[in-house]
Amino acid sequence: MQIFVKTLTGKTITLEVEPSDTIENVKAKIQDKEGIPPDQQRLIFNGKQLEDGRTLSDYNIQKDSTLHLVLR
């Protein structure tokens, strides 16, 4: 499925993911596309910070959902 990740600069990254993917996996995909190390990434969905060990389906993230990427 496709999800979107919006950065603070207003750029939107499109990712191909599975609901069973962990947040860690998603961060690795963002690193592949953008070169941002996962330990600098914080992903936010519906105002909640997403934890590495959880999956997209844990957070009820579905296709065409938009996550927000904050760098630390």
Rank of each mutant, 00 (worst) to 15 (best):
R54M: 11
L56P: 01
T22M: 03
L56W: 01
P37A: 05
D52L: 07
G47V: 14
T66M: 06
N60A: 10
F45H: 03
T7H: 04
D52E: 14
G10L: 11
K63E: 10
T9V: 05
G10K: 12
T7M: 07
E34I: 03
L69E: 01
L50F: 03
T14H: 04
F45R: 08
L50N: 00
L15N: 00
G53R: 08
K63M: 07
S57A: 07
L67T: 01
G53Q: 10
T7R: 13
Q40S: 05
P37S: 14
L69G: 01
Q41G: 09
D64P: 03
D58K: 07
L56Q: 00
L69S: 01
L69Y: 02
F4V: 07
K29A: 15
E16G: 14
V5T: 02
L67M: 04
D64S: 11
E18H: 06
I23E: 01
S20D: 09
I3L: 13
S65F: 15
K27L: 06
L56I: 06
E34N: 13
N60S: 09
V70F: 14
V17R: 01
T7L: 14
I23W: 01
M1Y: 07
I61H: 00
D64Y: 03
R42N: 02
I36L: 04
T7E: 05
I3R: 00
L8P: 15
L71M: 05
K11W: 07
V70S: 03
S65L: 03
T66G: 05
D64V: 07
Q40G: 05
L8K: 09
L8R: 10
K33A: 09
E16M: 14
E24F: 08
E51N: 09
Q62K: 06
A28M: 05
F4W: 13
R54S: 13
L69Q: 04
V17M: 11
P38D: 03
I44L: 03
K63A: 07
I13G: 08
M1D: 08
Q62H: 07
D39S: 15
Q41D: 01
I13D: 01
L43P: 01
K63D: 08
D39M: 10
I13N: 08
D52T: 14
